[in-house]
Computed example of a mutant assay.
Amino acid sequence: MKNKYSFFIALLAPTAMALFFAGTLFHGGSPGGKSGSPGDNGATCTQCHAGTATQQDGMISTNIPELGYVTGETYEVMLSATDADAGRFGFELTAEDADGNKVGQFIISADGQTQLANGNKAITHTASGITPVGDSKEWAFTWTAPSTDVGIVTFYSAVNAANNNGGTSGDQVLTSNVSYDESTIGIGEEPLEAFFNMSPNPSFGSIKISHEYNDAKLSIIDISGKIVFQEEYYQSDAQIDLSNLNKGVFLVQLQSKNQVKTKKLMIK
């Protein structure tokens, strides 16, 4: 009798584990490496969910100009998907150069619906970011272009439009990509580089930022993408106390109207 029970447990274990991972664990985000990109070997959500990935243009949109991105600049990215049969949505999105290398830095949204994945080289949903509005779902976040010339950058995404039946069947996996070349317009022009000046850097617990705008939103972000300090209306040259932050590298982002500029800060 004992051997018979052991046989049934061994038989059911793989099915139970598959349902656990597909129906529960990944509600909290992609396991990573499932964007459908060349750097991810084309892997998508179909590795865990039944079906064939379908290419769908227009799911990824950004405010990167038609002339291309500028190195070091930060841009808004939006991913949207529609499926009338979906009860939940999930995604993974990454950015790569022509050789499949991950490039740039993703910054998660303040609404708690996104998080970093795949060693901080991609972005995915959280458990709070899976519920559709009607038959659609949108995620918004930002991406900082690499500081050096890497040529054409392509954003790749895979979205799982899940029917929420608790299993892996009946889901639709949608893939999309969009490419941008590096802009040669404005590179080396002083106004681009002088959007704000930050000192001291490295810092031992406080900084001040000089900028040229009447209103500016200041955000300081750790390497996990979490906003650790934010001020809606930061006045130029006002002292900022960061003594409560751990030592390490942070991103300092200043946003005014339609412009966003990001710099790296080292706290020692």
Rank of each mutant, 00 (worst) to 15 (best):
K2P: 00
F7A: 08
F8G: 00
L12R: 01
A16P: 03
M17H: 11
A18V: 10
F21L: 09
G23N: 11
T24F: 09
H27R: 15
H27N: 15
H27S: 13
H27Q: 13
G29H: 11
S30L: 04
G32D: 01
G33T: 01
S37A: 14
P38R: 02
D40G: 05
D40A: 14
G42N: 10
C45K: 05
T46Y: 08
H49C: 10
G51T: 11
G51Y: 10
T52V: 14
T54C: 01
D57T: 13
T62L: 11
P65N: 11
L67P: 00
G68N: 04
V70I: 14
T71G: 06
T71K: 10
V77K: 01
L79T: 09
L79C: 10
S80M: 07
S80T: 12
D83P: 09
A84V: 07
D85F: 05
A86G: 12
F89Q: 02
G90V: 03
A98I: 12
D99T: 14
G100K: 03
N101W: 02
N101H: 08
V103F: 00
G104C: 03
F106H: 03
I107V: 11
I107Y: 04
I107T: 01
I108V: 15
S109C: 04
A110E: 15
G112T: 04
A117I: 12
K121A: 05
H125N: 15
H125K: 02
S128Y: 00
G129R: 10
D135Q: 04
S136N: 06
S136R: 06
W139Q: 10
F141M: 09
T148G: 10
I152A: 11
T154N: 02
F155D: 07
A161C: 04
T168V: 11
T168N: 15
S169V: 10
G170L: 06
D171T: 09
D171F: 08
V173C: 13
T175M: 05
T175G: 07
T175A: 01
S176L: 06
S176W: 03
S179H: 04
E182T: 03
I185D: 06
E189D: 12
E190T: 11
P191W: 08
E193M: 14
N197T: 14
P200C: 02
P200H: 13
F204I: 11
F204D: 15
G205A: 04
G205I: 06
K208W: 07
I209E: 09
I209N: 08
Y213T: 12
N214S: 11
D215A: 03
A216G: 08
A216S: 10
I221R: 03
I221A: 00
I223L: 13
G225M: 04
G225L: 04
I227W: 00
I227Q: 05
E231S: 12
Y233M: 00
S243D: 07
S243W: 01
S243P: 10
N244H: 05
L245F: 06
G248R: 11
V249S: 07
F250R: 03
L251C: 10
L254A: 09
Q255M: 05
S256N: 15
N258L: 09
V260A: 13
T262M: 04
K263R: 07
L265V: 01
M266R: 08
K268H: 14
